[in-house]
C-alpha cells in the first residue's frame, strides 16, 4: 500500500507502469485518474486545492486500509495533489491490483467515493469573476451508502 500527498505533478504513466510491474499473480490492475476540468459556469483560470496537512495522509491511509480489508487486493496506490492546478492537470490517481477484475474495479470505486467526501481537501475555482469554493455534492455523500 502506498499513499502519497504532494504538491508536485506526478507521472501517471510511470506510476501505473511501476505499480503494474511490481506484483506477481495479479490478474487485474485498475487505475483511475482525476483531471481538472473547467468550472461548471466556465472560464476557470486555475484551481487551488487546500488540505489539512496533519490529517490528510492518515485519512487517506485509513481509506486505503479499509479497501484492502474489504477486497482481495494485492496492492493499493493513492496519489493526491494539493496547491495550484490548471485545466487538464491530473489531481489524483488510484490504482488497485487484484487476482480478479471485479475486486480491482470495486475497490477503486470505493476509494474514489471515500476520497471525494472523507479526505480533507477543499477545491477553490478562480475565474475572471472571482473565486469560489466548490460545494460538496449530495450525490457524493449518498454514494457512500452503497458501501
Amino acid at each position: 500500500m502506498r499513499v502519497v500527498v504532494q504538491e508536485e505533478p506526478f507521472d501517471f504513466g510511470r506510476e501505473a507502469q511501476d505499480f503494474a510491474s511490481g506484483h506477481s499473480n495479479m490478474g487485474a490492475i485498475v487505475t483511475f485518474t482525476g483531471v481538472v476540468r473547467d468550472a461548471d459556469k466556465g472560464g476557470m483560470d486555475r484551481m487551488v486545492i487546500e488540505h489539512y496537512p496533519g490529517m490528510t495522509q492518515k485519512a487517506l491511509e485509513k481509506i486505503a486500509a479499509e479497501a484492502v480489508s474489504r477486497w482481495d487486493l494485492g496492492d493499493v496506490l493513492v496519489i493526491h495533489r494539493h496547491g495550484e492546478l490548471r485545466q487538464g492537470d491530473m489531481i489524483m490517481m488510484v490504482a488497485t491490483a487484484s487476482r480478479h477484475r471485479v475486486n480491482a474495479f470495486e475497490a477503486a470505486e470505493y476509494l474514489m467515493d471515500y476520497l471525494k467526501s472523507r479526505a480533507p481537501f477543499w477545491k477553490k475555482e478562480y475565474t475572471a469573476d472571482g473565486a469560489e469554493w466548490v460545494a460538496a455534492k449530495d450525490e457524493d455523500e449518498d454514494a457512500l451508502s452503497r458501501w
Binding site: 489539512y52 479526505a119 481537501f121 477543499w122 466548490v134 460545494a135 460538496a136 455523500e141
Partner: peptide, 12 residues
C-alpha cells in the same frame, strides 16, 4: 489537543 472546523470535503 486539536480541533478543526471545515466545510464538507471536496477531494478526488
Amino acid at each position: 489537543r486539536e480541533v478543526a472546523f471545515f466545510p464538507p470535503m471536496t477531494g478526488g
